[in-house]
Design a protein around this nucleic acid. Sequence first.
DNA 1: TGCCAGGCTTCAC
DNA 2: GTGAAGCATGGC
Length: 271
Amino acid sequence: MPEVKLHGVDFKKIKDSGQVFRMWEPEDGVFYINAIGRRLKIESKPHGVYVFHCPDEEYKRIWTPYFDLDTDYSHYLKCIRPEDDYLLRAVSCGLDMKILRQDPWETLVSFIISQRKNIPAIQKSIELLSKRFGERKDSENGEYYAFPTPEALANAALTDLRACSLGYRDEYVHLAARSVAGGELNLESLRFADSAELKDALTGLRGVGEKVANCVMLFGYHKLDAFPVDTWIRRVIDTEYGGDFPPESYKRYAGVLQQYIFYYARKMKGR
DNA sequence: TGCCAGGCTTCAC
DNA sequence: GTGAAGCATGGC
């Protein structure tokens, strides 16, 4: 069981970042996450040490890239203009945030569901969906339900999907599942596509517009230039940047910067 | 109790 | 291309 000293990662902020919906903290400093067909427990110890409840090999091969642990984010922040007070405050508030490398399918469905829902409601829908259609699994970190496969959701009755509080999005999820299960949309081969091609493929799905596509690109394909604009980001752009963001020099890592802004904007509202 | 939520589709213009 | 209405449901 790997016990590692980590710098530049804050799992509490990741849990609260709105990019991942199956991560929770049942007691202070203890995190669980259901992702990529696994359940992981992470325990924080003093002095930046974390215990990952999994084999060493899995930590290196799966979770290091998943949490992007080997990347130094200070590199992404060098483009920030010194006079951009708002962004500097946002970055300082969200320091040690990470952009995860989530499973594209789970990310796609999660963000289709996310439209016009708040985060607790999204989490609830995803848990209902997993319980009803996901495979029940046993792990050293407890029993859980894996995220449903495309086939499982493609074969589901629309009324059963609706029972997971999907609302009008039931049809969107069903169509996306049928498209992936039927091979018309190959999410794996899209890993090799550039951002423009990827966005075209995603927005070709019913119920996937600009915003959801950008979330899938950023959180499922690690396209750091993808810039999702939701109601929170829209408000900040309008009130802090006169309606125009990101500037050209920010565009390469706009998705990373966006994540700090999203986290900061929500944090400030909650105060 | 009303407003809002990590929006999208449709339709008018 | 832009703008507004309608959409199911639940959290706060």
